[in-house]
């Protein structure tokens, strides 16, 4: 958020390189074919989430009791479930939930985890010890178990599920940000900004945290994948979204009892999960490579 507009066309070629860092980054990022594929899939996912009512041929809860358990056909390209609901429409609508859960849970994780980790790393001493030992305890619990425990105690529902997934990811972001803050706070420009009279809070938010963003961006991207997966898992065991709202995990769970005779019922929501997670991982890996100068010039 620079106060200064970038200079206009300058005389010397070198001077035009104001966004060179971003351009470098984009060049490295898009050199990776997996990243391109990942970005494309994510774009499709987001479009389908936003425009679900326009894309889906049927309502997600529209039952057609004369056409239950139909294999994929021209009217129902992913087939229908035991209530005659169009699976394609349901998969499309479910992407809304998944995108929302993924993004919101990561936001919760980054916000609270980042704040805790940054404060612990920056202030050090007793604050660091107390916060990080608590985080260590939480890290000892597998994240999915932790999410299940929170969801079980809060009760089912979209909001509680998002909260559970978000909270269970806090320790990971806290660890990462603390590590970055520890290395940044020893740099000379931090001392220099103390020497111009900046307060601690100002140094932390204006100078330390902006320099710690790269690993958080990478972890956040991969975290969206985790969030979607955990949400699916919670819904699968009945702690997440309740029917009839479609959710990929919940749809898998519903199709489970028909898996022998009507495997398409689990196939399509399963594929949706797999492809989304794969795409997010491609993007996350490519981001990591592009943001890490050591890996750049391979």
């Amino acid at each position: 958020m620079s106060l200064f507009s970038t200079p206009g066309p300058a005389g010397v070629g070198e001077d035009c390189a104001d966004d060179s860092r971003l351009r470098d980054f984009a060049a490295v990022f898009f050199r990776n074919r997996m990243a391109k594929a990942g970005i494309f899939i994510l774009a499709v996912l987001i479009v389908s989430a936003v425009f679900a009512p326009l894309i889906a041929p049927y309502e997600y809860d529209e039952q057609d009791l004369l056409a239950t358990l139909e294999w994929p056909s021209r009217e129902h390209i992913f087939g229908t479930d035991e209530f005659g609901r169009d699976i394609f429409s349901r998969v499309v609508y479910a992407s809304r939930i998944s995108v929302m859960v993924g993004i919101v849970s990561v936001t919760i994780g980054i916000f609270f985890g980042g704040l805790l980790g940054a404060a612990a790393g920056f202030y050090g001493g007793a604050a660091d010890d107390v916060v990080m030992r608590c985080i260590d305890v939480l890290l000892a619990i597998p994240a999915i178990l932790f999410a299940i425990a929170i969801a079980a105690s809060l009760g089912p529902g979209l909001f509680n599920m998002v909260l559970a997934v978000g909270i269970s990811s806090i320790p990971y972001y806290a660890r990462i940000l603390r590590g970055s803050v520890l290395s940044i706070r020893e740099q000379e420009f931090i001392e220099a900004s103390r020497a111009v009279g900046s307060s601690n809070i100002r140094i932390l938010f204006r100078h330390v945290i902006p320099n710690c963003l790269a690993p958080i961006i990478v972890q956040g991207t991969l975290g969206v994948a985790d969030g979607i997966l955990y949400a699916a898992a919670l819904s699968f065991i009945g702690l997440g979204i309740q029917p009839p709202t479609p959710e990929w995990g919940g749809m898998l769970s519903g199709g489970r009892s028909f898996i022998r005779d009507y495997s398409y019922m689990t196939l399509f929501p399963g594929l949706a999960i797999v492809i989304t997670i794969l795409a997010l991982n491609f993007v996350g890996d490519a981001l990591r490579d592009a943001l890490d100068p050591k890996l750049r010039d391979r």
């Binding site: 620079s2 200064f4 740099q187 000379e188 420009f189 001392e191 220099a192 204006r206 100078h207 320099n211």
Partner: peptide
């Protein structure tokens, strides 16, 4: 400070 390479914040413009 001694080393100008490290005494500026790399992610803020010099004007800022």
């Amino acid at each position: 400070f001694q080393d100008p390479m490290t005494s500026l914040n790399p992610v803020a413009t010099i004007g800022d």
